[in-house]
Design a protein around this nucleic acid. Structure first.
Lengths: 222, 222
DNA sequence: GTCTATAAGCGGATAGAC
DNA sequence: GTCTATCCGCTTATAGAC
């Protein structure tokens, strides 16, 4: 699964200038690194592992990246931009469905990214707590923009009256994102992304509880 | 924060035989390993790191553990048993509150384990995807028992009529556990475990939406 | 039981041939 | 641009003194 989103990595959005050999190799290394990082973590992966997955040699990586840290930073940067773009596209496509509809679309898109779309999203979620501090600090700057985008989605839905007001909205957002992100730790998925997002959206918006059974009332019966 | 649950590690439950020097050292090494694994992952941690945290030398670890793999396996085993015990205690204490009340108690207890109780839980969640395959396979055997315990909690709540029947209950359980587990990835927690469990239980049982929440009824209960 | 010393090998990174 | 060869520090693990 090769990604050629030059709107993301390149400097000339929209233009179809063919990739140079060097750019193609660089991309192949990034893709391989994402795949290997996603399955084995950060520290557990050697540059020889990555080179082998990219069908080249460890020494050759240094023509494209100055260090392992710089390579992983590029992977994380690509990952967050790709996820953000995928979610933004889904939200834009649901533009006229109201804030609650847009939030649901975002939840579906983010889950899709984690579960099936690319190794970049999986690598991002799996290794962002294992990387050197300076790399993480730079990465957090990009990640924060994505978090704030989600904050806006939640705020809009609440302003629309679709979210109850007795919730800490930041906390709610982090918990919902956590439920999606943790799917990266599931073994081979027995469920389709559709069934997962459907179930998650039901739980998030309506809860698992039945309407007619009230917790306090149930307790009072005993 | 040292743990002396000999019901878990030892063979003689309930009896207060003093720990031998060797047992105490072994426990100190385990505690230190859990702490270091929790913050730096598995592959990124050297035996010197662990030894240093336990105030001893790398070579000395081999008197207590045959290999790094065996050490991490002991950490994971302790972690899962401690979490399971903590949740079971909370559920037992809520025995007469109905199945839904017991499930809420379990959610609170599991979140507590992840957020503040021990380094073991954090290490478990952070590294279980990074360890060698054979270690993970043995670990999964123990983890499965814990998963089945949660499955029973959800089943009981549904049988009681407290959970809507249009949900894939296994999927719901995994998503709810995921929301809790992902809190391990949060930076320094700005929230108390109480506010987190309160918000999470609201979302899980009632959802974030306003559609099916009877505001009058909620207010009347307080 | 714990230490020091060390073996054997893997890690990131560099130099220089092609 | 990519390769091979290599440096050198760090890793797990062992041996043997105390």
């Amino acid at each position: 699964m090769v990604h050629l989103n030059r709107q993301i990595d390149g400097a000339t959005p929209g233009f179809a200038r063919p990739l140079s050999k060097s750019e193609r190799t660089r991309q192949r290394i990034l893709d391989s690194a994402a795949r290997v990082f996603a399955s084995k973590g950060f520290a557990g992966v050697s540059l020889r592992d990555i080179a082998s997955a990219a069908d080249t040699k460890a020494g050759s990586l240094y023509y494209h990246f100055a260090s392992k840290d710089e390579l992983v930073e590029a992977v994380l940067r690509h990952a967050i931009e790709e996820m953000h773009q995928h979610v933004r596209d889904a939200v834009d496509a649901a533009a006229d469905e109201g804030a609650a509809g847009r939030l649901k679309a975002a939840i579906s898109a983010h889950t899709e990214s984690v579960m099936e779309r690319t190794d970049y999203a999986k690598a991002l979620l799996r290794i962002s707590s294992q990387i050197p501090d300076d790399v993480r600090e730079r990465h957090n700057k990009h990640a924060r923009a994505y978090g704030e985008y989600w904050g806006q989605l939640f705020n809009d839905a609440r302003d629309e009256g679709a979210i109850r007001v007795d919730l800490d909205l930041t906390l709610a957002r982090l918990l919902v994102l956590g439920a999606m992100n943790w799917t990266v730790e599931w073994p081979a998925s027995l469920w389709s992304p559709e069934s997962i997002t459907s179930t998650l959206n039901k739980i998030v918006f309506e809860g698992i509880g039945t309407d007619d059974v009230d917790e306090e009332a149930v307790r009072a019966l005993h």
